[in-house]
Structures are given as C-alpha cells and as structure tokens.
C-alpha cells in the first residue's frame, strides 16, 4: 500500500515539474531563461517519474535498466540546455540585458532578442 502512495506521489511531483518547465518555457521572456527552465525542471521531473517506474516494476533487472535510462537523461538533457544556452550567449554577446539592478528597469526592457516569426 505504501508503495502505491509513494509511486503516485513521485509520479505527480515529476509530472508537475515537467508541466512547470513547460509553463516556464512559455512565460519566460527570452531564450536564455527558457533553456534554463528546460534544463533543470524537466530533468528532475523525468528522474522522479523514472524512480516511480522502478518502484512500480519490482523485478530488479528492469530497475537496473531504468537506472541506466535515468543516468542517460541526467546526462543528455542538461547538456542540450547547455548547448542552446551557449549558442544564445555567443550570438547575443553584449546585448543581453544586465541582471535587473532595479525592479523598474527590468519591467520596461523588452526582450532584446529579435523575435522571429
């Protein structure tokens, strides 16, 4: 019974995190933050769900395999995030807005990145 609860908790939290990363993707103002959202939140979400899967399938071989999947996702998704972030950074160089010194300043500064239909 505890296993059921644990699995459902893990699943819910994991999917919530993935959802949040999706939301972040939509809400954030420029590409750099979006890659930030992608890299962190979704990795953690997926790992939690995989942990839930390990618990759900209780034979140990598949557990090991899922652990392999987990390491793989832990390895690749941040790397992808890093790549995109680096690309954005290299492309924009100086034109990125400074970290918001004052609340006022960041509100009015529109996304400096040219939008692309």
């Amino acid at each position: 019974m505890i296993r059921e609860i644990l699995i459902s908790v893990l699943l819910l939290v994991g999917s919530l995190l993935v959802f949040l990363s999706g939301l972040g993707l939509l809400r954030f103002s420029d590409a750099l933050c979006r890659s930030h959202a992608l890299a962190k939140a979704s990795t953690c979400g997926i790992c939690l769900m995989l942990a839930a899967l390990i618990l759900a399938l209780d034979n140990d071989i598949s557990g090991l395999k899922i652990f392999l999947v987990m390491t793989f996702t832990l390895l690749t998704i941040p790397l992808a995030g890093h790549l995109t972030a680096q690309l954005v950074y290299r492309h924009e160089q100086g034109r990125l807005r400074k970290p918001a010194s004052g609340q006022k300043k960041s509100a009015e500064s529109k996304s400096s990145l040219p939008a692309d239909r």
Binding site: A31, L38, I77, T84
Partner: peptide
C-alpha cells in the same frame, strides 16, 4: 517561438 533556439528548446521539451 520568436527565434529558432526557442523552437529547439520546445522540441526538446
């Protein structure tokens, strides 16, 4: 997505 990079990130998600 305005720029291509946003699209790449979205694709990954």
């Amino acid at each position: 997505g305005p720029t291509i990079i946003d699209r790449i990130i979205a694709f990954d998600l």
